[in-house]
Structure formats: C-alpha cells, structure tokens
Design a protein around this nucleic acid. Structure first.
Lengths: 340, 340
DNA sequence: CTGAAAGCGCTAACAT
DNA sequence: ATGTTAGCGCTTTCAG
C-alpha cells in the first residue's frame, strides 16, 4: 500500500481512450472539447483521483510558480502573523499561495530561505531583512523581473520597494505625549540588536521629542532586551536608578509586555507608559495602555499590492511606502510624574 | 531588462564546455568529478547567478516536493502562529518549507487549499479542519503514502492522526476552580459555530464540572460570539440577566479578550473569570487572569513529528495525541461570589 | 572521470 | 473536435 504511483494525465487519457492533450484541454478549459468526452474525462479524473502535477505544468509553461515567498523573523510574533494575513488576503484573488519561513533574524537562515524560494521560482519575494543580511545577491533576480519587497525594515545592497511604519514620528508622538504630561525623565526600553532599523528609528523619534522639550538626552535611561524576560529585568533596573525615570517608552510589543508585567509585579502604578505597537488587552489594563499603534495588516497589504503592481509591469522607481502609526491614548501615558 | 530568461543547467554547461550532467553532478555531489571541472563549474554558476530549478528537479525525481502544506483558520490568530512556529521548528532540519494558507473556517476554501497543496505534491499535509468540511477526498492520497495530520480538531471522513488539546478536562478544571471558590452561577462564553469541536468539548467539560458539584445546567448562562466584539456584547448581556452569573468561563482566547475588555469597561471587578488559552499580559491584569493554558507550540511539534514518522515508514494505527492543558491560577478565578 | 540519450508530467504549436 | 510532436530543466541510465 506504500508508493502507489499517483495517476498522471496519460493514465486518465488511457482510461478514457483519448490523447493526453485532450485531457489537458478539459482540465484547463483550453481549446474546444465535445460535451461527451468532457464528461468522460471528468469522470475518469474523479475515479482515479487524478490531481494534476502543478510543478510539471509550471515547468512547461515556463512562468513563475504561483507562490509568494515570505521571510519573517518569527512566525509566533502576532505582529508578523497580522502582516502575513494582510499579504494573503491581498494575493489570494490572484491565486497565489504563501510560502513562508522564519529567519530568526539570522542572515544565514534568511539567505537559505530566499535561495530555496528562488529555486522554487516564486512569483514574488517579500522579506523582513535580518540585521546584517546583504541582499545584493537578489539583484539579478530583481533585474530579471522578480518583484522583491522589503517589509518592516529596509534591505541592504538592493534598491527595491520597501514598506515601513512611521517609526520615527510615531515614537516622537508617543514620547511627546509623555512630555506633555510633565515627564522629563523618560526611559526607553528597546529591542536588540542596537543596530536594528526599527529600534534606531524609534530611538531617533524619542530623542527628537526630548530635544523639542529641551530635555537632555541621558544614556543611562536607555535599556535593551531580547525578549519579555529581558525587558522585565531592564525595567526593574531602570527603576532602581538613583534618579529613576518617571515614565517608560517601549520600543515594540514584546518590550511593552515586559514593562507592563514588571510594573504589575512590583505594583508600580505611578510610572507612566507608552508602548510602540498595539496589543490585545491594552484597554483592560489599569491604567489602560497608551500605544503607538502600527497597522500590520495594512503593511502586509501594501507590500503585496506593490509587488502585484510590479508583476503587472510597473517599472517605476523603487518606492518606500510609510504606513502611518496612530497614537491611541488610553491613560497609561497620563500618570503624573512622581514628585521627588 | 524585463524577462531576462534565467540561466539553466545547459547554460552553465555551455559556459564551461562540459555536459549538463557534469554540472548536475557537481551541484548534487553525485558521481565523481575532477577538482578542476568542479571549480570551473562552481565559478560559472556563481558568474551566471544560476539557481537550479527545483520544480524541474522534482518532476524528474518523482518524489514529493520538499514542502509541508498547512491549512489553518486564521493566520492572524496568535494561537495558530505559535502552532506554525512549532511545526516549522520541527521540520526545518529535514529541509521542509512551510506552504501555508488560511481557510477562514470555510470548507470550500479549505478544499481549494488542500487541492492546491496536493497539486504541488507536498510531502505532508497538516490541516485544522473547518467546520462542515469532509475529508474523505484525501483518502487515496493518504493511502498512497501522504502523511495527513489533523490539528486542534478531528477531521471528518478520514481516519488519520490528530493532535488536540485536552479540551474537556482542561475546561473541567477551569470551571471546577470557579466552583471551588464558591461559584454556582457560572456563565460560558463560547465561540461559534456551536458545532465546533473545541467548543463542544469545552462545553462538555464545563457541564461535567457543574454536575460534579450538583449545580444545575442553566442554558441561559450560555452565550456565543464570533469575535471579540461579540464576546463583549455577550458578556454584557449575561451580566444583565435577572439572576446573573457571578463567574465567567471563556471558551477560547478571543472570547477571553472580550470578557476581560467588557468587565474592564463596566468596571466589574466582582466577576470571577477563567479563560481557555493563555494570553500575553494575563499576569498584568487586575486581578491577574487565571487561564487553562494550551501549548500551541507543542501541538505543532507533535503534529510535525507524527507526520515525519509516517514519512519514515511508520505504518501503525492512526493515533489521536492529546496535548495536556494546564490550569494557571493567577487570581481572577478567586473573586468570591457576590452575595445577592 | 565524463557524455549522450531518454524521459519525468505536462503543454505549445502545429497538424488533421 | 482531437491527435502528434517537441520540449520545458532536470536527472537517470547506460556508454564510453
């Protein structure tokens, strides 16, 4: 019962007593076929459980495969899940299927994945660039007409379309909100590595907001972490400073989880918080969590639609599309600074 | 600059002045090749940016494609994101890539996706069955050696391996926890449709816990919703009953979000809550949210490893693997019942 | 060590 | 309306 060879077009043809091409015609609604043979063929297809081999078809037709390759850092991060949903919703109508892999932000894994996707002749390649990855090897493929889109961060070594959030202005607005409520010592808990594009942009926004308010930039108020546990530790460490922050800004959703968890554990309600990226249950916290919301689904949709336009022949210059963020004020940014 | 045909094996061969087969040998480390030609070939490959066509290879070799097809209801749901991560982690070592699509719990979309995956000759098929879907069409493929695994819910019309959470006993334990804290009127907010396997199992666990405590089953304490907004409305409606529940049980993560959001908005701290499925920020709520935690990554890993074992020739009977849930007590289940 | 020929499953381009 | 031939890009088989 093991390797029961799957039926082929030829098998179906033999069964009905017609040529392979006729079966092909029925299946692809290509040329004309008599109603009679058509029915016979369909019956045989059903009887044999024939399933056309898409790879064989693609190889003959010569076009790209009807798949879209997506490389993201982590399948488990809800942000990227929402991005993927936006992409899938946009390309489904075109009959494209998602080929996905996670790079864990490792350039080698990213390269291995993109190589696989290229070998599979994906129609479109969408990549969240890993820190330190070089994308110049993609150049010839892009030149040959493969749409390549960078998402969440710009790529290195290849000029192509990118979709990013308004990281800098978003972070600026979040921090300005804290400043407006009287805070002058504002901690920044960012993700790692320090060179990460989103982190740098958001930090730049943080600094811009401080500068506008003539608040000196104090490096001792910066902390970094890889994950939620790290963010909790970083938070606790910041709050133990001699001259501690009265407010905290979270550089992304995971850092936000860490800050909020640590404040809850230590029962510190007096620390104001604004987090980058909206999260579930933000409204149910006390105080409710004020966030700079990204729109991950929209990011996905824009990436997909940009790529589809390229597929349709758009030869205009590479663009960077910035998807706006939105400050959602819920209360946690309005805790007054504790008077020393 | 448009359709610059991609180089083929033959192009590389011509460039070096050898036969296609020799290039193939170098690339696949097949037969013996002199160090000299080997180097020349590799150089030409790099120079031309040659990328072997995996589809052409597969078609010739005849084996299944090195992809694993995964059909889930919703890419954006963090539960399924974690499942996908578990699967990918497990199959990566085998060189398998994830082909993913979301069914939106629509049987037609599920069928279209599985058909596509079969046409692509995936090595493995993992499906979260949509309600109302019939899986008997997969029978011949399974018989032909394709590992098929159902995940989160059992499939219909096909006997094969399934991985599920301990839904019934998990829900039982969560509700028993509420009972132990004195609650006798416990509302159940479940997802839709009512026929959904997980919902039915969890409801059965709920009923079992009530029965153990000699608490009558009151249908007016059941509510349903499709999404978080619906769950909020359902919660509010339950609490407006003449004889309202003093505790609520959430049938899944989304329902939990709805319940918690609604209780926060209406400032009802007196209602005890236990939710199925753990969520971020659960510990930061006040009171912290008690949950029946599933282990989505483990579910994914088990699904993948079961399928891999089948691929390796395991012909034993179809199994149903139950991944245990775990009651995580954090406080929200211990609110005493409000005395009327 | 290397190459020529055949063929995987399918479809394009001509027939008929 | 249907069939034939050739060939997509690669590997298998069999010869050198």
């Amino acid at each position: 019962m093991a390797a029961n060879r799957r039926p082929t077009l030829a098998d179906v043809a033999r069964e009905v007593g017609v040529s392979a091409k006729t079966v092909s015609r029925v299946l692809n609604e290509d040329g004309p076929v008599s109603e009679q043979t058509r029915a016979q063929v369909l019956a045989a297809v059903a009887r044999l459980g024939f399933q056309p081999n898409l790879m064989a078809r693609n190889i003959r037709v010569g076009g790209p495969d009807t798949t879209i390759g997506l490389v993201i850092p982590d399948l488990g991060n809800p942000f990227f899940g929402a991005v993927a949903r936006g992409i899938e919703d946009t390309v489904r109508g075109r009959g494209l299927t998602l080929l996905m892999g996670s790079s864990a932000d490792d350039p080698d894994r990213e390269r291995a994945l993109t190589a696989k996707f290229l070998a599979r002749r994906v129609s479109i390649l969408i990549v969240v660039p890993a820190v330190g990855a070089d994308h110049s090897p993609l150049k010839p493929h892009r030149a040959a007409g493969l749409p390549v889109v960078f998402l969440d961060r710009p790529g290195v070594g290849l000029s192509t379309d990118s979709i990013v959030s308004s990281n800098r202005s978003g972070a600026h607005d979040g921090v300005a909100h804290l400043v407006a409520h009287g805070h002058r010592r504002i901690g920044f808990v960012g993700d790692l590595p320090v060179k990460l594009y989103t982190r740098r942009e958001r930090l730049a926004g943080y600094r811009a907001a401080l500068q506008e308010a003539d608040i000196p930039y104090d490096r001792s108020l910066l902390a970094d972490a890889h994950d939620q546990q790290g963010a909790e530790a970083a938070t606790s460490q910041l709050l133990r400073l001699a001259d501690p922050p009265t407010a905290l800004f979270a550089g992304n959703n995971i850092m936000g989880f860490g800050i909020v968890a640590e404040l809850a554990r230590s029962k510190r309600k007096d620390v104001a918080v604004v987090a980058f990226d909206d999260v579930s249950l933000a409204e149910a916290l006390e105080p409710a969590l004020t966030v700079v919301a990204q729109d991950p689904e929209e990011i996905g949709r824009r990436a997909a639609s940009t790529a589809l336009a390229r597929l349709d022949g758009d030869r205009s210059r590479a663009r960077t599309i910035t998807v706006p963020t939105r400050l959602i004020v819920r209360g946690s940014g309005e805790q007054p600074p504790r008077k020393p």
